[in-house]
């Protein structure tokens, strides 16, 4: 009996960590899709870029883990601005098909470039000693790195919540997600909001990509492999809804982890069936606006 309970807790814990990871990566996609209406299938490529930049910073420049992680996120966010200005922005008014094709093209290019530079196999890095092994969280011993990931995700939720509820820029973004034309007409510079939101989203994705290396692994196919999961988080949660992305990511993380343990062959089937069911009933997602 105790063993069952222990296994259940372990699955739940791993699932929550995985879900947090999905949330960190996907929340930016939710904001940009809600704000700009852009079906960006290349969002995962920014996460992947974050992971590889982190590896380079630690191996080549000998930077410690946490500064390297933050620097990688900032670097990717900065570079993503170029993409927004020169590519994405040209297709804000285009139909979904063009957006999908452009971003698939970017995914291919990113995958090929990463393979060329880093080789096709999975990369690894050396996490600092304090994130290795187990950590005592009063109710029991838990893997330190996953605990760290959950903590980062929790902090991000608070920061995003404060950012969107309590700061001017957050209010503006929410207003623009709600009704872009109205926001424009009351003098909000929507164009600049797009850049900020895009950079923020890409930076968060890069952060998630860095954290992902130790949890789900990182290889050049990362952005394509997990693309569907990111999209599910966004679509099921509801475009532009941070709360929705959080709930959907946690749910997906837990169900997928449980599925892998309990029903290795059919678990994934169940996830897609659930996704379809949710979208059929609520096309705008759980927390989206109709």
């Amino acid at each position: 009996m105790e063993q069952v309970a222990r296994a259940a807790i372990s699955i739940l814990f791993d699932g929550v960590a995985y879900g947090m990871l999905l949330f960190i990566i996907s929340v930016g996609l939710s904001i940009t899709m809600g704000l700009m209406g852009f079906a960006n299938l290349a969002h995962g490529a920014f996460a992947m870029a974050g992971g590889y930049v982190l590896v380079s910073l630690m191996l080549t420049f000998d930077l410690p883990f946490i500064p390297a992680l933050l620097l990688a996120a900032v670097a990717v966010a900065a570079v993503s601005v170029l993409f927004e200005r020169f590519l994405y922005r040209r297709l804000y008014q285009a139909d979904e098909l063009d957006q999908v094709l452009l971003s698939i093209g970017l995914v291919f290019m990113a995958t090929a470039a990463i393979t060329f530079i880093y080789g096709p196999s999975t990369v690894s890095l050396k996490v600092p000693a304090y994130l290795q092994g187990q950590i005592d969280l009063w109710i029991g011993l838990f893997p330190a790195y996953r605990s760290f990931t959950i903590a980062v995700g929790g902090l991000l939720i608070l920061a995003l919540w404060y950012g969107f509820e309590g700061t001017i820029i957050g209010v503006k973004i929410r207003a623009a997600v709600d009704n872009r034309r109205m926001a424009q007409s009351i003098g909000i510079n929507v164009d600049r909001l797009f850049v900020i939101a895009f950079a923020l989203g890409s930076g968060l994705a890069a952060l998630g990509g860095g954290l992902a290396i130790e949890i789900i692994g990182m290889s050049p196919t990362f952005s394509l492999t997990y693309l569907v999961f990111f999209l599910i988080v966004v679509a099921v949660g509801g475009l532009g809804s941070i709360r929705g992305a959080f709930v959907a990511a946690l749910f997906l993380g837990i169900v997928d982890t449980a599925g892998k343990y309990l029903w290795p062959d059919g678990g994934a089937f169940f996830i897609y069936a659930m996704t379809i069911a949710v979208l059929l009933v609520k096309p705008e997602g759980l927390f989206g606006r109709a």
């Binding site: 063009d98 094709l101 995958t111």
Partner: peptide, 16 residues
Amino acid sequence: EFWEFGIGLLLVIVVL
């Protein structure tokens, strides 16, 4: 890799 990069680039160019 060259092929994959090329088809990606081609796609971007075609769309734009």
